[in-house]
Write a protein that binds this DNA or RNA. Structure first.
Length: 823
DNA sequence: AACTCCAGCCACTT
DNA sequence: TGCAAGTGGCTGGAGTT
């Protein structure tokens, strides 16, 4: 039979010792389809140089005899082929060794220990990845498929009878559909409310499900409500059964939660266990699987379970204003909507009349989650299509994994054998090999400047990699016909690295990404919509992560030499650009990595653009310097020590009155809102009006309010985050103390949890800040001295210093030295 | 007890 | 394990006077 088909979720199973893939998806009538298929399973043995044909043939014969009988499986080498391949850009002769079961490839590889074999590769890819590479059945792409309908068939042990889908098809062949129609997936968001954050301590009170024209809250805590979407069951056990029943009935492609890998799905699973029932959510009636690891991932067979927080974290967090990734803040930023007001309490303490609000609250969380999914769906779709991994992985992978997947799915064009993942030993070695010298930061000259210009390099690291053909594979000792890096000093030894001019697959692939980035950016500008934006953004993210990937210890194509060469070029180009601009008699104020800011000294904008063009004419390859903007004013301050200009800290106002504040306390979460807002205000007064006097008056006013206790406590909360488990801290900082306090009160504290506290008055002798910490709900008077000395003054002091105003003297009175001065 | 110095830490910028 | 290095500036603790 033939049918249209769009692959969504990939899974695999073993049948009679062989591997098969189940690909779940839809046809155009929205019927749920599962395709069963398989692909060749093999690894590569790269032969040493100059192995004769005779020896090769003998080796092939030897390898063909390999048989394994481990882990209850019988695997053997089924055939061996001889191929001309590339490995890291070099031509090699390699044996393609086909085996019975993918899970045994590693063991087969370790059986091949002939001295003729240089390296063994390609045994460490996921089976699903291998399948997609081999069969080119790409996720979220429309196909016409041809195959055999399995209906009450005995094939694969009667698989088709277990699967809750409309059609099970054994795939024969497929072709890509010319017209790639938009696919709107069937989505369902869910959220739980529980009596505890730990499944061992509390029951699930209710859950909500929200899909298109579908809203439901199910609870066993019966109370009056007008909301017709709320239904009741008898107890938690029935609630769990209802969850499974409703999800199955709805049959979503994507089941979406927020933080659900860590909370909702494991909670459901644990409570099912407690109630001694199964949770057969899978299309094959299997229970969800929570994979262990540093980060949990909840997988449901046949339904793509998405934990949105993860995708937002990797793909979006860097561009976001929100200070945490809580559902509430993220919804505010992206949806202009927020969670419903409801103070969560233990169910025993919830008043009868409040339950209806709790139901609403629960429902709205799923509404927000679904809306966020819809917001990010274009991005998930484009990332999936570009990288060619299932959305399940795409939504959870970090940046390095994304770029690596892109590489693996594109190696074939270059006839490349994939490099292996580093072993734990190699990772350890890489981590201990020390860092490389990073970029150059120009020490700014503190002051308020007028008529500024900023230039910056477009995708600097990436364009350097492309222009100088830098990568693990192109690194060479041959100085002829090579690009030479600037001199690099490490451990007192000076050296240069060389990279062959013959283009390598890594820089070429990166060039492809780089050019697509440009192309889709143009397309987006010409035709702005969510899809063109998402496509442009996906290539931007991939392009920007390339250098980080090369220097990442877990990368297959890690190269310390490449990374240090790239950064040496970065320093060189920045310094050269600064010199060239100075030669034109402009005063350079600041520069960091890929940017230069200077005053234009009455030069016209036209002249500046001419200068830019001239600078660009001298640049090699795809390197490009662009005009970031013209700025009316810009402010740089000294460091706290007061002598030198502070790097990574400045404020600018463009000619269109757009204010850009970098590094100042204003943008730092670990300063209290009062200090941040006051600093922001005075920066604005200075930038917009150039009026430091008005700014001074404003600060005096605030200082008075602090002294007279007119400041609201919310304005004084200091936020921070735990970056590791409490026990691992060597230093007992205020954050750690606050976290411990929270824990004592039964508030769960995990890595990444936001910690919030304020500094209170204290009668004891201690001078330590940590002894004065109060949590937001602990009543006390705020510590006037602390907020003046450690928050307010430090945040504005250096700004006024630029105008030769000593704020400390003004507010304290010149001669007072002791702290009594404030009263 | 009061000081200096810096490790440890977090949140930034690029 | 899950992209990099450079920077500012706080806090607490060790060491010194």
């Amino acid at each position: 039979m033939e049918m249209e088909f769009i692959p969504i979720d990939y899974d695999y199973f073993d049948y009679e010792g062989r591997n098969y893939v189940k690909v779940y998806g839809r046809n155009k009538e929205y019927k749920k389809i599962c395709i069963i298929d398989s692909c060749p399973i093999y690894l590569w043995a790269i032969l040493k140089d100059g192995v004769t044909e005779k020896l090769t043939k003998e080796l092939v014969k030897e390898i063909e005899t390999i048989k394994l009988d481990t882990k209850g499986r019988k695997t053997k080498v089924e055939k061996v082929e001889i191929h001309e391949k590339n490995f890291l850009g070099k031509k090699v002769k390699a044996l393609k060794i086909f085996a019975t079961n993918h899970k045994d490839l590693q063991d087969v590889a370790s059986q091949i220990d002939s001295p003729l074999v240089d390296k063994r590769r390609g045994y460490d890819l996921n089976y699903v990845t291998t399948y997609i590479i081999e069969k080119k059945l790409y996720p979220l792409t429309w196909y016409k498929i041809f195959g055999e309908l399995l209906h009450n068939s005995n094939e694969f042990g009667g698989m088709d009878q277990i699967l809750n889908v409309d059609f099970v098809i054994k795939l024969n062949r497929k072709k890509i559909e010319k017209k790639q129609e938009n696919f709107v997936p069937k989505t369902l968001a869910y959220d739980l409310e529980t009596d505890s954050l730990k499944p061992e301590n509390g029951e699930i009170l209710m859950f909500s499900l929200v899909g298109k024209n579908y809203k439901k809250v199910v609870s066993w805590k019966k109370s009056k409500t007008d909301n017709k979407n709320v239904v009741f069951v008898e107890n938690e056990k029935e609630l769990l059964k209802k969850f499974v029943e409703l999800v199955k009935e709805y049959s979503p492609d994507f089941l979406i939660g927020y933080n659900s890998d860590h909370f909702d799905l494991p909670f459901l699973k644990e409570r099912a266990k407690k109630n001694k029932i199964k949770l057969p959510l899978g299309i094959d009636n299997s229970d969800p699987k929570i994979s262990r690891g540093k980060t949990l991932a909840g997988k449901i067979s046949g339904i793509t379970h998405i934990d949105l927080i993860k995708f937002i974290r990797t793909a979006y967090a860097q561009y976001m204003q929100s200070e945490t990734l809580s559902l509430n803040e993220v919804s505010k930023e992206f949806l202009n909507d927020a969670k419903k007001d409801f103070k969560i309490k233990h169910s025993s303490k919830i008043e009868e009349k409040s339950w209806k609000n709790y139901y609403e609250y629960n429902l709205h969380d799923s509404v927000l989650t679904l809306k966020l999914f819809e917001k990010f769906w274009p991005d998930l779709l484009e990332f999936t299509k570009i990288i060619k991994e299932p959305t399940f992985e795409i939504s959870r992978n970090g940046l390095s994994k994304q770029i690596e997947s892109y590489l693996l799915h594109n190696l074939e064009k270059y006839n490349e054998i994939p490099e292996k993942r580093p072993t734990n030993n190699e990772i350890g070695f890489r981590q201990n090999s020390g860092g490389v010298e990073g970029a150059f930061v120009y020490e700014p000259k503190p002051g308020l400047y007028k008529e500024l210009v900023m230039f910056d390099f477009t995708s600097m690291h990436t364009s350097i990699i492309i222009s100088y053909n830098i990568s693990k594979g192109t690194l060479t000792t041959n100085k002829k016909n090579s690009y030479e890096s600037p001199e690099i000093e490490k451990d007192g030894i000076k050296k240069k690295y060389y990279f062959a001019k013959e283009p390598g697959f890594f820089p070429l692939l990166l060039k492809e990404i780089f050019e697509k980035r440009k192309q889709y950016k143009k397309e987006y500008k010409k035709n702005p919509n969510v899809i063109t934006k998402a496509r442009s953004n996906a290539f931007k993210v991939l392009s920007a992560s390339a250098h980080g990937y090369i220097g990442f210890y877990g990368a297959r194509y890690y190269s310390l030499e490449s990374s240090s060469a790239i950064l040496a070029f970065v320093r060189q180009f920045n310094k050269e650009t600064i010199e060239k601009i100075e030669k034109k008699k402009h005063k350079v104020i600041y520069g960091d990595t890929d940017s230069v800011a200077f005053t234009r000294n009455e030069s016209s904008k036209k002249e500046i653009k001419k200068l830019l063009k001239k600078l660009n004419d001298d640049l090699p390859g795809v390197m490009h310097l662009e005009l970031e903007d013209f700025f009316k004013r810009g402010l740089w301050v000294t460091t706290r020590s007061g002598k030198i200009g502070a790097k990574k800290k400045y404020a600018l106002i463009s000619e269109n009155d757009i204010i850009k504040i970098r590094g100042f306390e204003t943008v730092r979460r670990d300063w209290c809102p009062l200090a941040r807002k006051t600093q922001d205000k005075i920066l604005r007064l200075i930038l917009i009006e150039g009026n430091e006097k008005k700014a001074l008056e404003y600060v005096k006013e605030i200082i008075n309010k602090i002294k007279t206790r007119e400041i609201k406590k919310e304005e004084l909360m200091i936020k921070s985050q735990l970056k590791k488990p409490i026990a691992e801290y060597k230093a007992i900082s205020p954050t750690v103390v606050a976290a411990k306090k929270m824990k004592e009160k039964g508030i769960p504290v995990n890595v990444g949890s936001p910690i919030e506290y304020y500094i209170a008055e204290y009668n004891g002798k201690s001078k330590l800040v940590r002894d004065k910490i109060k949590l937001p709900d602990e009543k006390n008077k705020y510590n006037i001295e602390y907020y003046l000395e450690k928050q307010m003054l430090p945040s504005v002091e250096n700004i006024f210093q630029v105008f030769n105003i000593n704020i400390k003297e003004i507010t304290e009175g010149k001669k007072q030295e002791k702290l009594g001065k404030w009263f």
